[in-house]
């Protein structure tokens, strides 16, 4: 509901003495600077709830995926085993796996007849996290593995002849590969937060009766608004999504820079 349409109601609710102060309450330079946002039909908390769901789902999925992927990348980077090349090509294929198919498979898994049906996860954030996890894991694993494999063999040798155990050598390699691993996590996050197909299928793009997002993310909201012809709203949400991705990237790059200039 537009804020301006609420404003005339306020004096009735709060009583007339407030009327004189209302322009001051609402107005001032701040409100003048934000006409575009105030004109849009956003309910209180609608945008924030979408941002919250987007970040909650993507960050949780990427965190779980990182905990899962890095050990795999370390083991694959440090050992040779039969089928290693095959495992690598499976991971690389996973990077290009269509997200809608992942969504479909997760939906089957959590549906009533599926193996996880008892958990009752259809159209929940948990199901969305599952599909995002499946999508984010291949890029995080593959890029981390490339970064770990790219660490100079001389550096590993140095850590070992200076008295390092296998764990010490692995820690040195992880530290040397830290920018590559940060890139990997960012790539996973980028894939998760900008993804539409699978979260739409398993999440259902649902808001509550109060207009607060249950499983609606920025991407699915943009898709919905654009389809309904609300291009302005879609653009604003798109700008929020881009700003969010840029912010997360900037934070990670800043952390990496601290590593350089410490």
């Amino acid at each position: 509901m537009p804020l301006e349409s609420v404003a005339p109601l306020l004096p009735i609710v709060l009583g007339s003495p407030v009327t004189a102060d209302l322009p001051a309450l609402l107005g001032g330079p701040v409100a003048a600077d934000l006409p575009a946002l105030l004109d849009l039909p956003f309910r209180d908390g609608y945008v924030w709830s979408i941002i919250y769901v987007s970040l909650y789902v993507s960050l949780t999925a990427v965190a779980l995926s990182t905990l899962f992927s890095i050990p795999i990348a370390v083991v694959m980077g440090f050992t040779d085993f039969p089928g290693k090349q095959f495992a690598k090509s499976v991971i690389n294929t996973g990077m290009g796996f269509p997200s809608v198919v992942v969504g479909l498979l997760v939906l089957f898994a959590v549906s009533n007849q599926g193996p996880l049906g008892a958990l009752d996860l259809v159209f929940t954030k948990q199901a969305m996290i599952m599909s995002q996890f499946v999508l984010a894991t291949p890029p995080i694993t593959a890029i981390s593995l490339a970064a770990i494999s790219g660490v100079d063999q001389n550096v590993r040798d140095a850590a070992r002849v200076l008295g390092g155990t296998r764990v010490d050598v692995a820690l040195v390699v992880l530290k040397e590969a830290r920018y590559g691993i940060a890139t990997a996590i960012l790539a996973g996050f980028g894939r998760a937060i900008s993804e539409v197909g699978s979260v739409l299928i398993v999440g259902g793009n649902i808001t509550g009766a109060d207009g607060i997002s249950k499983t609606r993310t920025l991407t699915t909201a943009i898709q919905l608004e654009a389809r309904q012809g609300q291009y302005e709203t879609a653009m604003i949400l798109g700008a929020v999504l881009v700003a969010l991705v840029l912010t997360v990237n900037a934070v990670v790059i800043r952390l990496g820079d601290q590593g350089v200039h410490r």
């Binding site: 001389n154 040798d157 140095a158 850590a159 008295g163 530290k175 410490r262």
Partner: peptide, 14 residues
């Protein structure tokens, strides 16, 4: 025992 290689192979740190 300690060893130094032909290449310095320092870690990316101070």
């Amino acid at each position: 025992v300690g060893m130094v290689f032909q290449e310095a192979s320092l870690f990316d740190a101070p």
